[in-house]
C-alpha cells in the first residue's frame, strides 16, 4: 500500500526502524506513525473494542478520536496514528499480564 513514484511529491526515505506489533515484525520509515506502517503492510485492525468486542482501526488519523490506541512496550497506551516506532519497540492490541 506504499505510494511510490508520486507525480508531485518526492520519494520518502526507505524503511529502517524495526518494531513488532502483536509479536509480528515490521519495518517503519523513520518518524512514521505505527498505524501508517501497519496499513502499508495491509494491517488495518489495531485493537478490539472492550465492550462491543468489535475491530477498530484508524479513524481520524490526527490524534483526536483515540480509536487507534495500542499498548507500547506493555506499559503505556499510545495513539498509533501519531506515535512513531523507535528501534525495538513492541506494540500490541492488548496489554499482557506479566
Amino acid at each position: 500500500m506504499r505510494i511510490t513514484g508520486h507525480p508531485v511529491l518526492p520519494d520518502l526515505p526507505a524503511d529502517e526502524v524495526g518494531f513488532t506489533f502483536n509479536g509480528e515484525p515490521y519495518t517503519a520509515r523513520e518518524g512514521e506513525p505505527v498505524a501508517a506502517t501497519l496499513l502499508a503492510n495491509g494491517v488495518r485492525q489495531l485493537r478490539v473494542s472492550p465492550v462491543a468486542v468489535e475491530p477498530r482501526g484508524i479513524y481520524c488519523g490526527i490524534g483526536h478520536c483515540y480509536e487507534c490506541r495500542v499498548w507500547l512496550n506493555n506499559d503505556t497506551q499510545v495513539r498509533a496514528c501519531l506515535t512513531p516506532a523507535t528501534e525495538g519497540d513492541s506494540f500490541a492490541s492488548e496489554r499482557t499480564e506479566e
Partner: peptide, 21 residues
Amino acid sequence: TLPGAMTIGAAQVLTNIHRVK
C-alpha cells in the same frame, strides 16, 4: 467503526504525509 472506514482527513494524512494508500 470498521477498520477501513475513516475520515477524509485521515485519508489526506495517509496519502500526502505518510504516503500510504
